[in-house]
Write a protein that binds this DNA or RNA. Structure first.
Lengths: 227, 227
DNA sequence: ACTAAAAGACCGGCCGCGCTGTTTTTTTGA
DNA sequence: TCAAAAAAACAGCGCGGCCGGTCTTTTAGT
């Protein structure tokens, strides 16, 4: 809605449109950089404009308000997150086990990306920002959909494995994220490595269970005391 | 260092000192409320003073700068977090299993406390705030120490169980926190409940393994493919 | 094909606001 | 009476939003 202005009929050919798009891109990149390096609280429109090497006036021309800028930035970040992940992932690994292993490593690495950190910063800000809240909510939904699609593309064998896949994804997503976020202030490398391995192992369990059919029973098995 | 001003020689006897202490407490409480409700970015000294029903002048008298206020608030929050948890926990549950169950529930509940949310908000802010960073780092260390002591007090049988206890604590802490933080924008109750149960189950496993001796082997068992 | 008009990109500065920290004045308790 | 505590007034600064104006590109009329 606010993402593209008029969407000029001729697509990308005119020089103006191209220049405009370049400026836009530069501004959004600068926004991510600012949020990542300065934090949400210290990101001002002037600093973004300076970093993008454009005047504040020009910036206002493209993004009439800070709100509009951030909204556009959120979409931009989502694209970059998905894009970055799919670029790193190796889809053509034959062994599903190895693919899983690599996938988890890559996701863990992804959580240190400036795009993820910026996204998180905006998420936190959205909690107390009435304007940003619906934007982030919508973005989160969009991201999750695209994310799940990406995962199923990489792990086609996970299709139709019932609730187990969701559980597995949640387990590694939340624990990794929790770890990554705590790491931002407090570093304990050894414990982190151990935990990553542990989670890997658990996901592997679920993966194995999912392949042996009877998914509901498999879920129950993980919830009840395994004794 | 910046936490207490002069630490008046007479301890709490004079009416003035008592009133001063009350004002202090009220101010810190108001700070937590503001950070919780408005977010770090929108918390200003004036808003805190208004909420505490004191003048800005009076506040500055107690906390000469915003920095000093936040530093004191961090300590205050840590105290409240520990305090709140130990108040809710039921130490006299005979069955270790039941105690564990309750403990995890209580920790999960604790993550929705305003004290935890405010703490997290400050943690995020500290990433890009040079002044706040050392404060939070120190605070994190202090909190972790006190936290571990509290845990061992509640679960004395976990003493001397080697690296397993650390792993178990990390697993539930990080995954719960990751979940709680994501929940702030994105709610999916069913998945959350499932995941909490799953983690409970895993911690139970580790607990059982820890009691059967040979801890290193037990750790290895969880990391290698369990097949 | 040529030019006049319209649209778009960009610039720099101004304004009001809220913020933090300082200083001055008033109140209050010993 | 006098110093500590509280209140109030003040000053400087950065912020976001807005505006008038310039230059470039595109469109349209002939």
């Amino acid at each position: 809605m606010a993402a593209k202005k008029k969407a000029s009929p001729d697509s990308g050919s005119s020089r103006q449109a191209e220049k405009s798009l370049q400026t836009r891109e530069r501004t959004l990149k600068a926004t991510v950089d600012c949020v990542y390096e300065l934090g949400y609280a210290n990101t001002s429109t002037k600093k973004v404009a300076d970093r993008a090497n454009i005047s504040r006036g020009a910036m206002i021309h493209h993004f009439p308000s800070k709100q509009a800028l951030l909204t556009a930035a959120v979409d931009y970040i989502i694209d970059k997150r998905i894009e970055g992940f799919t670029a790193d992932i190796e889809k053509n690994l034959k062994d599903p086990q190895a693919r899983l292993e690599r996938g988890l490593d890559i996701y863990w690495k992804h959580l240190h990306t400036r795009h993820f950190v910026a996204y998180h910063e905006l998420t936190v800000a959205a909690r107390t920002d009435k304007e940003l809240q619906p934007v982030m909510k919508k973005a989160a939904r969009k991201f999750e959909d695209r994310w799940q699609a990406t995962i199923l593309e990489v792990f086609p064998e996970w299709k139709d494995t019932g609730p187990l896949i969701q559980l597995a994804m949640d387990v590694c997503q939340f624990s990794f994220e929790g770890m990554a976020l705590n790491k931002l202030t407090h570093d304990a490398q050894a414990r982190q490595k151990l935990l990553v391995e542990y989670i890997k192992s658990r996901v592997r369990d679920m993966f194995d269970a999912a392949q042996s059919g009877n998914h509901d029973k498999a879920v129950a098995q993980f919830l009840l005391d395994s004794k």
